[in-house]
């Protein structure tokens, strides 16, 4: 029994490594490293702190979150820092939601594994939920004065990102996307070919446009992502393989199949409690869909999986206060369920 499980895990791992690591993960890690190195996040955040009107600040916060990247653990200091700097409760919680639920890294990865339909749905749904969260949080806590604010960190308003860096990041994103979109059939080696061409162009451009220090810093940041996310990802894929063996398909079909409110709720709950490091949600959802999960619930799980987790609830309660967590968490669960049901029945 244990042996069968082990084999199932190893098989999943082997398939995954063979078809994803080179053309999908390698560029993803370089992209993540580049975003940390070349985007001046401090400057992005300072722009966010100074917006007065709600629609404007909410939109800006949602868009900025796409580039702040990474998982729920790194986003808490960002969001609490903004809150204590006087950015407003709505903005703080939008960042808290969008950055893990829908950052560039997770998005391109979702597109590669699950296709563009779910990718677009994930973006649209995350943004819709962000606005609702922003307005609800501001409305519920409107009587509460701002926290004892610290001054917004001062510093010269440097540019958030330069033109050459934008081109570099776009090239990296293309290297990540093109192998899957240009090569839809034929052997895997074709994808490797496209990947090779993209990587060479990107590398040449990087060396031409950036100085040595920046390149070294970029490599250091990339290596950090490899060190932190890769083991989690491999462990996750192994676990997914084992779960695929253990869980009967009937069970998945019964609780997560179709696009009913109930299955959407079940998927949301699963995602809201479990911790998914950024990117690990995609292979997990892929496996569950093969076993019969509906598309609506899949979307709900994609959003709430990385966006919310039990440890995350506790951290939010500690940093922002118990009452705010008590509004935020049920709100996300309700919205996730609704979004999964709506997309499952009317969009897909």
């Amino acid at each position: 029994m244990l042996y069968t499980l082990f084999i199932a895990g190893i098989t999943a791992l082997r398939d995954y490594v063979a078809t994803h690591v080179l053309t999908c993960l390698v560029p993803a890690f370089f992209l993540a490293g580049a975003m940390v190195t070349f985007i001046n996040r401090q400057s992005v955040l300072m722009h966010l702190g100074g917006q007065a009107s709600k629609p404007k600040s909410f939109t800006l916060a949602s868009l900025a979150s796409f580039f702040i990247a990474a998982c729920s653990c790194t986003v808490i200091p960002v969001s609490s820092g903004l809150y204590y700097a006087g950015a407003g409760i709505g903005v703080a919680f939008i960042i808290l939601w969008v950055a893990p639920a829908s950052n560039i890294l997770a998005l391109v990865y979702t597109g590669n594994i699950l296709g563009s339909e779910l990718l677009i749905a994930r973006v649209v749904a995350a943004l819709f939920m962000a606005y609702v969260v922003g307005y609800v949080m501001s409305w519920v806590f409107c009587n509460e004065g701002p926290p004892p604010t610290t001054a917004m960190p001062q510093g010269d308003m440097e540019k958030a990102i330069g033109r050459e860096e934008i081109i570099l990041i776009l090239l990296l994103a293309l290297t990540l996307l093109l192998p899957n979109y240009l090569v839809t059939e034929g052997p895997y080696i074709y994808k490797v070919g496209v990947w090779g061409i993209g990587s060479s162009i990107t590398a040449a451009y990087a060396i031409g446009s950036q100085n040595n220090d920046r390149l070294i810093e970029w490599m250091r940041e990339t290596w950090w992502f490899v060190k932190t996310i890769f083991p989690l990802l491999l462990g996750g894929v192994f676990l997914v393989g084992v779960l695929g063996e253990v869980l009967p398909e009937e069970l998945i079909k019964e609780y997560l199949g179709g696009n009913s409110i109930a299955s959407s709720f079940a998927a949301t709950l699963l995602g809201s409690v479990t911790y998914f490091a950024t990117m690990t949600e995609a292979p997990f959802v892929d496996k569950l869909m093969q076993m019969g999960m509906g598309k609506g619930p899949a979307l709900a799980l994609l959003l709430t999986g990385p966006g919310l987790s039990l440890p995350n609830w506790l951290a939010i309660a500690r940093v922002f206060g118990f009452k705010k967590a008590l509004v935020y968490v049920p709100l996300i669960i309700a919205l996730g369920t609704l979004v999964g049901w709506f997309f499952g029945n009317f969009i897909f």
Partner: peptide, 13 residues
């Protein structure tokens, strides 16, 4: 302590 950190004006750890 994340609250203390936020009060220092730190956003990026």
């Amino acid at each position: 302590d994340m609250r203390e950190i936020a009060k220092l004006g730190v956003m990026l750890t």
